[in-house]
Design a binder for these strands. Structure first.
Ligand SMILES: [Mn+2]
Ligand SMILES: [Mn+2]
Ligand SMILES: [Zn+2]
Ligand SMILES: [Zn+2]
Lengths: 145, 145
DNA sequence: TTAAAATTGATAAAGACATTCAAAATCTTT
DNA sequence: AAAGATTTTGAATGTCTTTATCAATTTTAA
């Protein structure tokens, strides 16, 4: 908990940026929302604590959170960027229900390995990947029958 | 007439939609651009043949091309939708150079199988997926040293 | 040929995100 | 502590992609 906050603080210090109250608040609100949050949603949550914070500051801080390794952007194909905690989390991909939009975090080391090999076979040095699996979740399938 | 053009024609007929000259032209221009084309790029290419075509029509037709299985949308993370031929093409994913933005089409049946299994293990019925591999291509790596 | 229905393109609108800029906050140097 | 330099902030405006509106035109059906 303190760990992540400290990492953000140190990142800002290293870049000679200031740890302002707004940045601190946005970090805190982001950090204890466990969901995959959009800038709009985060902005609304932040406003509950301090209505004077502007949305430009939320966008700007979200960018800093990503650069510092605290947050990671994901895109579920619903037209908005979403952000999830990336510090102290191991890598995972997402399984998304196209009906209720719930998502499950998944990871298969065999898939990860094969992705590496696939890239290498084409002479690429792999630096990252995005994998989204779309389907119908058990809950929705049950309701449909 | 090409196979694909016929399929588009039949799709329109089935939906009681009209095969207009604009739709025909947009299909033709799309079909012989081999690249992953954005709506803007397609619009410009179409205008070379008929400057009177509006961009709204390009967007609308692109949607029809996707519905009919002629085109498929991909998203390389550069802020625009891109479209590629989907008819008579087997499924593939993309390996994208983050430096020069060139892309390579790749596919690994083992990865595909493991995705199925991963979804099934979580009780999901898999309906689709998006996999983008990002890295540095051989060409760019060579130039960098 | 006439009437009904679908399509078109110019324009406006929407929506997410980025930029601008004057005022405010924060850090540095005296 | 005060002054000065630098950064940050929030409101407003701008940009970019995509969608909606709607009167006019084109196509199909009768
Ligand atoms: Mn996640
Ligand atoms: Mn492709
Ligand atoms: Zn569901
Ligand atoms: Zn390259």
């Amino acid at each position: 908990m303190q760990e992540a906050r400290k990492q953000f603080f140190q990142f800002l210090a290293r870049k000679k940026l200031k740890f302002t109250s707004q940045r601190g608040l946005i970090f805190d609100v982001f950090w204890h929302i466990k969901d995959h949050v959009s800038p709009e949603e985060l902005y609304n949550a932040v406003k509950q604590n301090d209505p004077r914070v502007g949305q430009a500051t939320v966008y700007r801080t979200l960018k800093l959170l990503c650069e510092s390794g605290i947050a990671r952007e994901v895109n579920f194909g619903d037209g908005v960027a979403r952000f999830e905690p990336a510090f102290g989390q191991s890598h995972h991909d997402h399984l998304i229900c196209t009906n209720c939009h719930r998502s499950v975090e998944v990871m298969d080391p065999k898939i990860e390995k094969l992705q590496e090999k696939l890239a290498r076979d084409h002479g690429f040095t792999l630096t990252g990947h995005k994998l989204y699996l779309f389907g119908i979740c058990p809950h929705c399938r049950e309701k449909a029958r």
